[in-house]
Simulated assay, not measured.
Amino acid sequence: MPERNDAALEFLLTRRSRPAKTLTGPGPMRDELMPILTAAARTPDHGKLEPWRFIVVEKPALERLGHQVTARGEALGIDPAKITKERHAYDTSPLAVVVVESPKASDKVPAIEQTYSAGAACLALLNAALASGWGANWLSGWASLDRDFIRDGFGLEDHESVAGILHIGTQTVAPPERPRPDVDAITQWIKD
C-alpha cells in the first residue's frame, strides 16, 4: 500500500478559494511568495518547456492597471457595470500573480499540452497560496483577454496570453461551502 499523506489529501478535499472581494492587505512579502511560486513551478510540464511564466503585480502596479481597465473598457464600449466589476479586483487586491501562457516551439509537445500545463500552474499557485494560509482567488475577466491591455499592462509578447490572475491577500471571511460536482455522475469506469 502506498504511503498516504492524509494532511495533503484533507487539504485538497476541503480547499476553497476566497472571493477576491473578501481579500485585504497585507499580501505576502517576496520571501513569503517565493515558496508559493516555487510550488507552482513544480506543475506537470511535459518536455520541461516551462510554457508559462509569472508576473508579480504589487499594489502600485495594480492601481495603474485599474486605471487602464477603465480606459480600455471605455474605448471598447464595454458596459460600465462590467468595467467597474473588472476594475474592482485590481483596486482592492493587495497583490496579484499573473500566470502567463508562453508556449514554446516543440515537435514533441503539442500546444494544447502546454496550455494545460499553464492552467495546472494556476491551480498549483492557488493551492500553494491557500496552503500557506493566504486567501487567494483565480480570476481572469475581459481585460485579461484583450490583446492591447495585456500587451500594454503586462508587457506580454504576441505569442503569449494570460492563463489566470491569482489575487492573494489576507482573508477577511471564509465563504460558505458551495455545491460540488456529483462525482458518481461524472465518472465512467471501464473494466474490459
Rank of each mutant, 00 (worst) to 15 (best):
185 A>P: 09
22 T>M: 07
107 D>K: 13
149 F>V: 04
46 H>W: 11
118 A>Y: 07
140 S>C: 13
38 T>K: 14
56 V>E: 12
188 Q>I: 12
161 S>Y: 05
187 T>F: 08
62 L>N: 05
83 I>Q: 10
177 E>S: 12
161 S>R: 10
163 A>W: 09
59 K>E: 12
36 I>T: 03
175 P>T: 03
59 K>G: 05
126 L>Q: 01
166 L>H: 04
188 Q>D: 10
94 P>I: 02
31 D>N: 12
51 P>K: 00
12 L>V: 11
157 E>D: 15
56 V>K: 00
157 E>S: 13
122 C>G: 00
115 T>E: 10
135 G>S: 04
189 W>V: 15
52 W>V: 02
128 A>C: 06
130 L>G: 07
158 D>N: 12
144 S>I: 01
30 R>Q: 14
82 K>D: 14
61 A>Q: 14
52 W>L: 01
36 I>Q: 01
68 Q>S: 15
70 T>F: 06
134 W>K: 03
95 L>M: 14
98 V>I: 15
50 E>F: 11
189 W>L: 13
122 C>H: 01
110 P>W: 07
83 I>N: 09
183 V>S: 10
43 T>A: 11
79 D>V: 07
179 P>A: 06
183 V>T: 13
176 P>V: 11
117 S>I: 06
29 M>G: 11
177 E>N: 08
85 K>R: 15
63 E>G: 00
91 D>I: 00
185 A>M: 09
108 K>C: 04
129 A>F: 08
70 T>D: 10
47 G>W: 02
148 D>T: 12
159 H>M: 08
169 G>N: 03
159 H>V: 08
148 D>H: 13
110 P>R: 07
24 T>C: 07
112 I>D: 11
55 I>C: 01
18 R>C: 13
156 L>N: 01
5 N>K: 08
29 M>I: 08
63 E>W: 08
182 D>G: 07
177 E>V: 15
87 R>L: 06
132 S>V: 08
133 G>T: 06
130 L>N: 05
82 K>G: 03
128 A>K: 01
122 C>V: 11
136 A>N: 04
105 A>F: 08
56 V>W: 09
171 Q>K: 13
4 R>V: 08
130 L>A: 07
24 T>H: 05
161 S>H: 07
109 V>T: 08
51 P>A: 02
5 N>P: 05
179 P>F: 04
80 P>A: 04
21 K>A: 15
108 K>E: 13
66 G>V: 02
70 T>G: 00
192 D>Y: 11
76 L>N: 07
43 T>G: 02
27 G>V: 02
133 G>W: 11
44 P>N: 03
137 N>D: 15
66 G>P: 00
26 P>N: 06
